[in-house]
Structures are given as C-alpha cells and as structure tokens.
Design a protein around this nucleic acid. Structure first.
Lengths: 233, 233
DNA sequence: GCATATAGTTAGACACAACTAACTGCTTAT
DNA sequence: ATAAGCAGTTAGTTGTGTCTAACTATATGC
C-alpha cells in the first residue's frame, strides 16, 4: 500500500484512539501500559502508534507523560465508537448474536463500515426497536430456523438456488441437487460445480426461468432451478 | 503481526481467490493480467499472491500457466462470495444504500464478518424479503428520516442521549445541550465533553434516571437526560 | 537520598503486501 | 523464422505494524 490518503486512519490507529478515549474518560489520561494491555500489544508498539497519532495531531503526547486526545482525536474516536455501538446493537438486538461474538464482530467491522451505511443502520435500529413484540419474536424465530438448517459451524456454501435469482444476476454452480434428467442434461454439457449461470428472464410466478450458461440458453422449471445450488455474485 | 494462524486468509488473499473464482467461472481459467486489472494492483503483486495461494493449496499454479482453483480454494472463495452477497443484499434491500456504495461496502466487510453473523444476516434477509410492502415502506421512511436528521456527510457524533441508555451501560459525554440549571450543575462538577457516564438505574417510565459520573451520583429527570448527548460504549 | 522496580523508549528485525525496474518466456505477424 | 510486443516473473524497495532486547526515566520503599 504505497498510495496513502494522509487523512485516513488505519484500523490499528482507530483502535488506539478508541481505547485512549475510554481510558481518558475513566481516568483523565491514558497510560501506555493500559493501552498495551487492552489491545494485547507490546508497550513499544504503543509508543510507535502514539508518535504517529501525535504527528497527526490526534493526541497530546510527550515522552513519559500521560496521553490525552486532541479535539480532533476525540471526534475521530467518537465516530469509531458510534459505528461500534450501532453494529453491536444490531448484532445483539436484531440478529440475536451473543454478547461476546457481537462485541468481537463490532470491533472488526467498525473500521470498515462507511459513515453512510452506519447512519442508515442506526436509522434501521430505531425502526427495529419500535417493532411490536410479535414481529421481533417472528424475526428471531426466522433467524434461529435458518441457523438450524446448516448446523455445521463453518458451512461450506449456502443454500440459495437458481430459483432465488433475479434476472440479470450471475452465479456459480455449487452443486446439482437432483440426480434426475436435468443432472444428466447439464453433465452432458460439461456443466457442474464452478460453472457460471446467468438468469435472463423469469416468468411471472418464477416458472419457467430462462438461463444462459456457457453459451447455452435453456429454460428451467422452478423445481429444476431449485435443485441447482449456487452462490450469487 | 508476527503470530499467524496458518489457516487464516488475509483480506488481500481472499480478494484474489474471489476474482480467480469469477475469472475461472467465466473463462475456464484466470490470467495474471485479468486479476491485476480487477484488483488494481501490478502484475508482480499477483504473482506473489499466487505463489502464496499455491503453497497453501488453494490454487493450481505453475509459472506462465493459467490459474485455477483447487477444491479447497473453491470452498474458501465461495464462503467469501456468500458473505459478500448477503451484505450487499442487506445494504440495498434493507438499508436502501445505492448499488455502488453497497458493492463497495460489501467488499470491505466481507473479510471481517464472521460466518456466524453472516448466516444470521442471511436468516434475517429471508424474513425481510417476506415482509409486507407496507412495513418495508415504513422502514425505508424511518431510515430516510434519520438520514435527513444530520445531513452533514460525516456527522461528527450521533444524537443518542443519556435518556437512551440502559442500566449498566457506560457512555462519554459529547455535548450538554441545555444551558439551564443542569448545565451549570454539571459544569461545577467539572463535567463536560469527554466525561464518563454510567447509568445505574432507570425508573419505570424512564424518569428519573440515576447516573454515576466521576464518583458523583445524581438523578436526572428525563428531560435533563435528553439534553446530554453521549456516545455509548 | 539512594537503590530498585516499573513504566516507557529506542533500536533493530521481521511479516506482509504493495510498488518499480529489469529480465524471461510465449505468441504472432511479417 | 525471427523480431517485436506483451505477459509473467524475479529482485529489490517501501510503508505499516508488530515483535524482542536493551536502554532510560520516573516513582517507590526503606
């Protein structure tokens, strides 16, 4: 990564700002050791990070003295923490993720999610919190059901099929479920796992579906389409 | 980053696998130049990545020959693409993000989101797609409204307040909205931007709220709590 | 008030993933 | 059939962020 936008913070530097903010809020100032412990890095790594942050005017830092945030550093940290918060709330309140995994997930995603999407997610959370209890129950049941479907911890691939695709979308075949005539037809064309499928048109009720695959054009009945597991682009 | 889990792929390597999968699906094999163009990197970076991926048995690679995925590489790529897909759908269908930003966001988050959360998100999407039209309209209206609230592209901080906090939660003060008696009371205690607030208890209807702040304990009426803007931990 | 413990810094190394520049191999057009 | 052009590779450099080891400052206890 040679080209750098000087005003962009790396995930790592955002993490430092975040823990500095909390340390300052709790104790008035942040110490190197506290930061190192929270982030599970060596003290020397903290020193290095502080030098960069100071040079970018995000922290007040002099060797051997306690660290505080500049106004700009506070803003920056606050932005990160907000993204963290909205993600964690979404994970726990909507998706039913347990507290630990939600925290862990928020810590990772907070550095990548854009301000726009984070703000929309916050808007969504307002809506979600106002949802009637019955809807929330239906939602969490829907999620739990879909979790049960593929219990294997790291399910290789999902279960969407050609029948789920919208016109114009592309996907790759993962598995042909049926062993009927269709499987043979496709096998004859040399089409199996890894082949690209593009949906051209879907008739009103999803039957038939016209697809393009390796130059061939064919029409599938819905039942057939459902037997072709894909991953969508 | 010295300690490495050998079976963990970096974001960068996941990107390579992803574009290799699409290239193979479309053309039967991936060429270095195509990969380089898609990822906006130099060809030499692709060669380096391919050597690593080959060593990890994720691609079939011999110098100067076209690249394909191993079975394991396909699985790995498929997992990434699925996470990508569910994120993009969520952004466009639920949050109303435009296609470009959704794609961009999915590209960034796909490398960080856990399999568990991605699967739950997929479950949520099933629920969301089945939502009645009226609910979807209400949802998108809710999101647009909250977007309008702080139109500044990169709004410094959010608008949640002490009144939104649940017992046990901590937050940092961002701004004291009112200039009334409370502002003076808090200022006298040396409490302003950056101070840590912890909610101890909330009375039935959210009034009053007992908080702890720099050792002080105080009770706020709901209106007062609403005038203290915070960012929640 | 000095010895010692702990906190913090500096120096040097390494992993990763990009880059440029120079070189090699393959293909194709005359 | 060979030269030109392009694709691909190798070698060497850079930036970021971590590490260990050795050193320096500050604080604490007697």
């Amino acid at each position: 990564m040679t080209q750098r936008f000087v005003d962009t913070l790396s995930a790592s530097l955002e993490d430092y700002l975040e823990v500095i903010l909390w340390a300052v809020a709790a104790n008035g100032a942040a110490r190197v050791r506290d930061i190192a412990n929270r982030l599970h890095v060596q003290a020397s790594s903290v020193t290095a990070a502080l030098q960069v942050l100071a040079q970018r005017q995000l922290v007040h830092y002099k060797p051997y003295e306690a660290v505080t945030l500049t106004a700009e550093g506070f803003e920056e940290a606050a932005r990160v923490i907000q993204r963290h918060h909205v993600l964690r709330e979404f994970f726990t309140e909507v998706l039913g993720v347990d507290v630990e995994a939600a925290e862990e997930g928020a810590c990772r995603l907070e550095h990548e999610i854009s301000g726009d999407i984070a703000r929309r997610l916050a808007g969504f959370m307002e809506y979600a919190k106002a949802m009637p209890q019955s809807d929330r129950a239906a939602l969490s049941k829907s999620i739990e059901r879909s979790m049960g479907g593929s219990a294997e911890a790291d399910s290789p691939v999902g279960r969407s099929t050609v029948a789920d695709m919208k016109p114009g979308r592309q996907a790759v075949i993962v598995r042909i479920g049926s062993h009927g005539e269709l499987a043979r037809r496709l096998a004859d064309m040399g089409l199996g796992r890894g082949a690209l499928v593009e949906v051209e048109a879907v008739a009103p009720l999803g039957d038939p579906i016209r697809i393009r695959i390796r130059g061939y054009r064919l029409a599938l009945r819905k039942a057939e389409a459902r037997s072709i597991a894909v991953i969508e682009k």
